[in-house]
């Protein structure tokens, strides 16, 4: 649309009379409202986060008295006090470590297990293969709520609830249908000739998996890893159910949810706490945006 006239002159044979007469009109009438609308919407989308960020650096007595936007004009009164308070007094540092402790294994284990299964689903023939895969596709839509009560009592009887084991296992199993689905589609799209020539060279399935499939699938594995990491980092429900109320294991989402209950409108601590929990996902987002968007958009169907 708006890109077309830029490209048109390079193609000498393209008659551009129609575009040339239309283009100026669209620029004068269409562009200003269009730009204003887009910028307005973008501002609406950014302001909530910006307000939180600015507030987290404001002294508590000001947060409860004046709006965050007043901080943008002199006198500038900013402080790191909220961050040091919330890290020291509210277990937030422990929770940060707990979130990492939950999210790293909960990313590595499902991807490891899923990649083996996905390879079989993509490149091996066996009875029930299509039915089993259809089952996994169906499970993508099933609400986790359907599993909570029996899994919790299973974990309780095995001593796996109230500590990290249960959360690790739960995240691993819950992550499998989507991980297998995504990897199987990616593995299956690899060119079949590669496998044939490797087979002629005498490579078995194990060699092909480690030497061919995994190296060629790094982009898919990266997208999946980022998706799964953020999914588990941001999870509240699984942690609430399987960790219970033990504060020494609580990840940041649980600790902040508890802070909201206990502090109510004690926003100076809440804003700092929320921003600490957002920092890592935002860094991942900014650094690995392409993989990130691919993983999130492919993966948000997950149950």
């Amino acid at each position: 649309m708006s890109v077309a006239p830029v490209a048109a002159p390079s193609r000498a044979e393209t008659p551009i009379v129609v575009e040339a007469t239309k283009e100026p009109r669209r620029f004068t009438l269409g562009s200003l409202p269009l730009n204003l609308a887009l910028i307005l919407l973008t501002i609406i989308w950014v302001v909530p986060t910006l307000g939180l960020l600015v507030s987290s650096f404001r002294p508590g007595f000001l947060i409860s008295r004046t709006g965050w936007w007043t901080a943008l004009a002199p006198p500038f009164q900013f402080t790191l006090q909220n961050y040091s308070d919330v890290l020291q007094t509210n277990n937030l540092f422990t929770s940060f470590i707990n979130s990492l402790t939950i999210a790293i294994p909960a990313t590595v284990m499902p991807i490891a297990i899923a990649s083996f299964a996905a390879y079989a689903f993509a490149w091996m023939r066996f009875p029930l293969r299509n039915w089993l895969f259809l089952l996994l596709v169906g499970l993508l839509a099933v609400p986790l709520q359907m599993t909570l009560i029996p899994v919790l009592s299973l974990f309780k009887s095995l001593g796996l609830s109230g500590n990290f084991f249960g959360v690790w296992i739960a995240h691993t199993a819950y992550g499998l249908p989507f991980a297998i689905y995504l990897l199987r589609n990616f593995f299956g799209a690899l060119p079949g000739d590669l496998f044939e020539s490797a087979q002629i060279d005498g490579a078995g399935p194990v060699t092909m998996f480690f030497r061919l499939v995994l190296p060629l699938s790094v982009p898919a594995l990266a997208s999946l890893a980022i998706f799964q990491f953020l999914w588990t980092w941001n999870d509240l429900l699984v942690a609430l159910v399987y960790l219970g109320s033990a504060p020494q294991f609580a990840p940041m989402t649980v600790t902040i949810a508890n802070l909201v209950n206990s502090l109510g409108s004690g926003y100076e601590l809440l804003t700092a706490a929320a921003f600490i929990s957002m920092a890592l996902p935002l860094v991942v987002f900014l650094a690995l945006q392409r993989y990130f968007v691919r993983g999130m958009t492919a993966g948000a169907v997950k149950g």
């Binding site: 989308w45 307000g51 940041m252 909201v260 804003t271 706490a273 929320a274």
Partner: peptide
């Protein structure tokens, strides 16, 4: 960007 953060953080943002 909001897709990157947790709903808990989003909840704090919008309560504010």
């Amino acid at each position: 960007m909001p897709m990157a953060i947790s709903f808990v953080a989003a909840g704090v943002i919008w309560r504010f």
